[in-house]
């Protein structure tokens, strides 16, 4: 119950980073895992295979947290170089709140995903629908990030550069991590698996090659 109250407070907070500072870290991590797992489990349930449900449930929290951890050292240095070190703890708390918001929004969208699966058994529809859900959650979490950054940018406009740097690197890493962690939904023709064959492929190389082939045909 405390977890639900905490999530409610986070979503309503004007300054989510302040709330993050007040809530114990363990509870924040638990919230991310529970909400992320919930959406992942629903996402992996398109073919009703328990193993795929478990795998997908585990992958969403990994996706949400691992890419942030990879990008944090660079973000720390960029903040320091731009003379914004004093605000760094606030910004990190803001980023935590952003990731939590994303997990919560995804969890709140999971009933829609379940209904979509019930309405159509088509795998490609499931892929597009989940893509749309992730897009919606990303937009909302971006708004949350904007809420965190607005007072900081007002005070020191250089924070805008940091925000752009964070988003660029975070998206760059997240796309590759998401590619590595496939399958999230699980193609009906393939057995459930944690990683798909060709895990060491590179998302960008594949896209560039496909584009190149398309343009030079």
């Amino acid at each position: 119950m405390k977890l639900v109250a905490c999530a409610d407070a986070l979503l309503k907070a004007d300054a989510p980073e302040r709330l993050v500072a007040e809530v114990p870290g363990r509870r924040l991590v638990l919230m991310l895992i529970v909400a992320g797992f919930f959406y992942g489990a629903v996402m992996g349930s398109s073919t009703l295979r328990p193993l795929q449900v478990l795998y997908s449930g585990l992958k969403v929290p990994i996706l949400l947290s691992a890419s942030s951890l990879v990008c944090l050292p660079n973000f720390f240095v960029v903040n320091t170089i731009l003379g914004l070190r004093e605000d760094f703890p606030t910004v990190v708390r803001g980023l935590v709140s952003t990731q939590l918001t994303m997990a919560l929004v995804l969890a709140s969208l999971s009933p829609l995903t379940a209904v979509a699966y019930l309405s159509s058994g088509d795998y490609h529809f499931a892929v597009v629908f989940n893509g749309l859900m992730f897009f919606v959650a990303s937009v909302v979490s971006h708004v949350q990030l904007g809420r965190v950054y607005a007072p900081l940018i007002r005070e020191r406009p250089r924070h805008r550069v940091c925000k752009v740097v964070w988003l660029t690197l975070y998206i760059f890493v997240t796309i590759q991590l998401a590619w590595m962690l496939r399958p999230f939904i699980g193609a009906p023709s393939l057995p459930p698996s944690f990683f798909r064959e060709g895990i060491w492929d590179n998302a960008y190389v594949v896209v560039f090659r496909d584009l190149w082939t398309l343009l030079t045909k």
């Binding site: 990879v70 050292p73 240095v77 960029v78 170089i81 991590l177 590619w179 590595m180």
Partner: peptide, 26 residues
């Protein structure tokens, strides 16, 4: 030193891509 500090901070990103890709040109 500033150049290398920023480069070092990008090390984990390079490490992540190194472990997740086999494409040498990339």
């Amino acid at each position: 030193a500033i150049n290398l500090a920023l480069l070092a901070s990008l090390g984990p990103v390079v490490g992540f891509f190194t472990l997740s890709t086999q494409s040498y040109p990339f």
